[in-house]
């Protein structure tokens, strides 16, 4: 199953091409179908400010493409990449192929923050109050989990997972309580928790892009160190890795990327778990190859899922539900197959 060096390059490039193609194709899908050529022309016209390119195109199309579809499509793509990237980092640092971006309770923190904003009907920051509360909740949760699991500046995989589970459980109870308090408002909270990319804006695209790029640069810079961290702290230290520092930097960047993703889209499960897992099958555990491939595959997958729920299904199914419904059984199959092979 494991591919060689050249094939991995080819895989990375074709994934990048497929993602770009899928973005264009998905933009054409919806209530108003737009041919791919028109989409490229609309984009080119906007980028080069040359309105002559728009000749013969219905004037509503540029609006649909630019202000309605592309922000949502790009946000979904970026969030998919971000979640997959965080998944790779978490699995590497926690020495556990089954860790995901939510293992440290970042999702519960975000959910609690968002629920709080929704229940209290906070609108002091208008459209941004829910994402801001979600992000704050995620960041605070992360701080508490890191505080609980660090000792003398050292953090270990086991204490991190345990602290994440404990804090997550407390927050889950908090969320239930908020739902109880919310009364009729409860539907809003439930919808937020299930995730959605509906009515995303260019600002969302910008925020996620910045987060993803920072995370990507840092994680590629430390990718080889992350490989060696999977041998355990003692081995990593003596092989020349500043393991404590690298672990902190990568944990923080993966968590912040996750927090940003969750705050713009709600909780979308399974992408961060399945994609790194599947890609590790194909390219092996070397993070220098695994990170780019996983980011692209995550982007492609979440874009596909969001397009299905937006333009294919008769009713829009919450994206978090869709990824779990498809991803869960899929994961069971892989898991089962691997088990059988291991025996």
């Amino acid at each position: 199953m494991r591919q060689s060096g050249h094939t991995i390059w080819l895989l990375t490039l074709s994934l990048a091409a497929a993602t770009f193609g899928a973005i264009v194709y998905a933009t054409g899908m919806g209530h108003i179908a737009v041919p791919g050529g028109d989409i490229l022309r609309v984009i080119a016209a906007r980028v080069t400010s040359n309105s002559a390119l728009l000749a013969g195109i219905d004037p509503v199309i540029p609006f649909v493409v630019f202000d309605v579809r592309l922000p949502r499509i790009l946000t979904a793509t970026l969030v998919g990449g971000g979640l997959a990237m965080s998944g790779v980092i978490y699995q590497g640092i926690l020495l556990n192929p089954l860790a995901d971006p939510y293992t440290l309770g970042v999702s519960s923190g975000a959910a609690f923050g968002a629920a709080l904003a929704l229940v209290a009907n906070l609108s002091l920051m208008g459209h941004f109050s829910v994402p801001l509360f979600a992000f704050t909740g995620a960041a605070l949760t992360l701080l508490v989990v890191l505080y609980l699991s660090s000792f003398n500046g050292q953090i270990s995989a086991n204490t991190l997972i345990l602290s994440g589970v404990i804090v997550g459980a407390i927050l889950a109870a908090g969320i239930s309580f908020l739902k109880y308090l919310a009364d009729e408002q409860v539907a809003v909270i439930i919808f937020w928790l299930m995730g959605s990319f509906a009515s995303r804006t260019w600002l969302d695209v910008g925020v996620v892009t910045v987060a993803l790029l920072c995370g990507l640069v840092l994680s590629l810079y430390y990718a080889r160190d992350l490989n060696i961290l999977s041998l355990g702290t003692r081995a990593a230290d003596t092989l020349g890795v500043e393991s404590t520092r690298v672990r902190w930097i990568l944990l923080l960047s993966a968590s912040l990327v996750t927090a940003v993703c969750v705050s713009v889209s709600g909780i979308i499960g399974f992408i961060g778990l399945i994609v790194p897992h599947l890609m590790r099958f194909l390219v092996g555990p070397d993070n220098r190859k695994l990170l780019p491939v996983s980011i692209l595959a995550g982007a492609l997958l979440l874009l596909a899922a969001d397009t299905v729920t937006r333009a294919v299904l008769p009713v829009e199914v919450p994206i978090g539900v869709l990824t779990a419904l498809i991803g869960g059984p899929f994961f069971c199959v892989i898991f089962r197959r691997r088990q059988r092979r291991a025996i």
Binding site: L231, G232, R234, A235, T238, G240, V241, E242, R280
Partner: peptide, 27 residues
């Protein structure tokens, strides 16, 4: 610096569990 020390001192630790499918040569 860890990097400098790693060129002077090597350790064979007691725990050598690895959960990821690196090849022998990669390790």
């Amino acid at each position: 610096r860890r990097r400098d020390l790693a060129r002077l001192v090597a350790l064979v630790p007691q725990d050598f569990a690895i959960d990821f499918a690196f090849t022998v040569q990669e390790v």
